[in-house]
Simulated assay, not measured.
Amino acid sequence: MLTFTIRRLVLSIPTLLLISLVIFLLLELAPGDPTAAQPLTIPPEVRERLREALGLGEPLHVRFVKWIVQFFWVEPQVLIDHVFGTTFSEGKQRLISWQTRSPIMDIVVQRMPQTLWVVGLSYVVGVLIALPIGILSAYRQYSIFDQIGTFVSMLGFSVPTFFTGVLLIVIFSVHLGWFPSIYDTTLVVNSWDNFLAQLRQMVMPVFVLALFNAAQISRFMRASMLDNLNQDYVRTARAKGLSERVVVLVHVLRNSMMPVVTVIALGVPQVFGGAIITEQVFKVNGIGQLLITAIQANDLPMVQTLTFIFAVLIVLFNLIADVLYGVLDPRIRYD
């Protein structure tokens, strides 16, 4: 297992480099100019100096190498400084946002807690709801519980989150007045009242995203359980006198988690990426809203960095899913 993990980590380096090159070229070749928002009365020579100040006067390959070095060497030091209070990145050249003229990683660190509070909690809640629903729906196939679970799952997966979010706002904010319709990102949880206020403003966005996540995962869980409930090893385990709970929750569930682990692991990067639509509906000042704002402002460094962060997380959690396969199924050996 250790050899496989090291081999995959080494192979991920050229993969990430190729992904970074594709992201960089696509965004560089996209139409738009960072000085387009400036007044038209600015002389061409001043506009050109602005472009050079943003680093656009250098050749394409030089800018790509500088961006890669900053992303893999300088920005991790910035993140360590934020977490542990060190000064490794002091005095080093940083990735700067064209829109705000601020270091990109500083903005990401400021926005990340809001995203993790809302999107992260909704993903955990969705997984905790989806797994038991999928297991019971498969074990009691075609029962009333299975039919209700199927209907709710299809509804949650089919209805877009922007419609569900607006519907909840109309019902619970406008008519009933139970929850706030706008997420207050300036709220500091330093008392019991502020903690309750934080919970109240998280209820609707968390429910919207949890419903969507649970609908998808529960369907995978149900289908995987049904595939394993009719296998020969299940009949053998029952013939040996094992209790039904042990057969289902130990033998069947462990083998059924294989495809579900992939779905859950690949969904984790979405947590860090934020829920772009839901954050827009509830005005959550998170990573998703930051990406939309950067795209609208043609802030290429911010868009490149955020997009590549998502790519790194996807590659990382693909590796984690492969490692978990060997943990869940003893028959899988990578070495």
Rank of each mutant, 00 (worst) to 15 (best):
V10A: 14
V312C: 10
I314W: 05
N298I: 12
V83G: 09
L324T: 14
N190H: 10
G149Y: 09
L249C: 09
V303N: 08
L50G: 13
S218G: 00
I309P: 00
Y142H: 14
M258N: 15
F71Y: 11
L11S: 11
L211Y: 06
T150S: 14
M1K: 13
L26A: 13
S102E: 15
T115A: 02
I295G: 02
A311Q: 10
Q93P: 00
A265R: 11
T150C: 00
L116W: 01
D33G: 04
I171F: 09
G241T: 10
V83H: 06
V109H: 08
I276V: 14
V78N: 02
I217M: 08
Q99K: 15
I287V: 15
A297I: 02
L116P: 04
S153N: 08
H82Y: 15
L116A: 05
Q99C: 00
V203L: 13
F157A: 05
L79G: 08
E52G: 00
N213P: 04
L176Q: 05
V268T: 08
I133R: 11
Y142F: 13
V10T: 09
V152T: 15
W178I: 06
M154I: 13
A275S: 12
Q289K: 12
V109C: 05
P59H: 03
N255Y: 00
V260W: 03
Q304G: 01
V65T: 11
D146W: 06
T150M: 13
G273I: 01
G177D: 02
N194F: 01
M221T: 13
S243L: 04
E28M: 00
R49C: 05
V69K: 12
E52C: 01
P39G: 09
V303A: 07
I107L: 14
A265S: 14
I133S: 02
V83R: 03
N213F: 13
G286Y: 04
V247E: 10
V271L: 03
I277P: 11
K240R: 12
H251L: 10
Q99L: 12
Q270T: 12
I135C: 07
P259F: 07
S181F: 10
A265G: 01
G165W: 03
G32K: 03
G120P: 10
P132L: 11
T15K: 06
V118P: 10
E279A: 01
T236F: 12
M1I: 09
H251W: 03
L50C: 07
F72K: 02
L56H: 06
V206G: 00
V281F: 06
V127Y: 02
L21R: 04
L306D: 01
R49T: 10
R111T: 01
V118S: 06
N255P: 01
R101A: 15
K92R: 15
I292M: 09
I13V: 15
Q93A: 12
L290V: 08
F172Y: 09
V263I: 12
